[in-house]
């Protein structure tokens, strides 16, 4: 995928250590990815604490934004899980905000998109998957296994349906993590590819350069929408899985 300008569109996903660090034999280097992860964490904390500081009755613009985020997730949780979802609100909120800020930070020029790292998306998906499974077993005990035999399936089909349902359940974290990773990676790669065309074509003449430029601008808007949407989809799916674990369909 090397382009003439010498920039590989995948270079932007390359991880490199910034600060070497380790415990014993374990390499726990702070990489560029980790730095942006921390930046996202810090920004979420600033966003949710600084602007809400003064308890003004009429919220300012930033405070409104914080409140909208809060209510957005609260409503999402209530619509998808119901009353019993309340205890998981901080988790879903953290999940959504973290992914959203990682995605959005990735839109900055020369930044790094943490959510384009397969380890990161799969780790988050696994946390959701394991957490939801634990919630299911805590809530229903061994009765949670009935989850794998949907209602209305005749008994003789059970040996076929149950493995498929279990497989379908196991696929969830993979598709959850893969979806976020694939969207962010594909979007950013596309953006880089088109951006790579701008300079060499623009050197020929203005018009050939303007076409990929317009594409880059359009894609940038699309990427902003996807950055939000993917955070939303991740959170909504977590809510739906939570609903399944609590209510068993």
């Amino acid at each position: 995928m090397a382009t003439d300008s010498g920039h590989n569109p995948l270079d932007q996903f390359a991880v490199s250590p910034v600060v070497e660090f380790g415990i014993g034999d374990l390499d726990l280097a702070i990489t560029n990815s980790v730095i942006w992860m921390m930046a996202a964490t810090a920004l979420v904390i600033i966003f949710t604490t600084v602007f809400i500081g003064r308890r003004n009755m009429v919220p300012g613009r930033m405070q409104s934004l914080v409140e909208i985020s809060y209510e957005f997730i609260a409503n999402m949780l209530e619509d998808n899980v119901g009353e019993q979802g309340r205890p998981f609100f901080p988790f879903v909120f953290t999940l959504f905000m973290f992914i959203l800020f990682c995605n959005m930070l990735g839109m900055l020029p020369y930044s790094f998109t943490v959510t384009s790292q397969i380890v990161v998306t799969f780790a988050l998906a696994l946390v959701v998957f394991i957490g939801v499974t634990i919630v299911g077993f805590v809530k229903h005990g061994l009765g949670f296994f009935r989850f794998f035999l949907p209602h209305g399936v005749p008994g003789f089909l059970a040996p076929l349906v149950i493995p498929i349902e279990i497989l379908s359940y196991l696929i969830r974290p993979v598709s959850l993590g893969l979806r976020l990773f694939a969207n962010l990676t594909a979007g950013h790669t596309m953006l880089k590819v088109f951006a790579g065309f701008v300079a060499p074509l623009g050197a020929l003449w203005i018009l050939p350069g303007a076409v990929p430029m317009a594409a880059v601008i359009g894609l940038t808007f699309l990427e902003f929408a996807i950055a939000f949407l993917q955070a939303y989809v991740f959170a909504v799916l977590s809510c739906i899985y939570l609903h399944d674990a609590i209510h068993m369909h």
């Binding site: 280097a29 380890v119 946390v127 990773f181």
Partner: peptide, 23 residues
């Protein structure tokens, strides 16, 4: 570059730290 194995553990570790702290 996302599939290079060496950075899995550090990323995972710091992700856990950040996420738990944020939570």
């Amino acid at each position: 570059p996302q599939l290079e194995f060496w950075h899995f553990l550090p990323q995972f570790f710091w992700l856990a730290v950040c996420f738990v702290f944020l939570y």
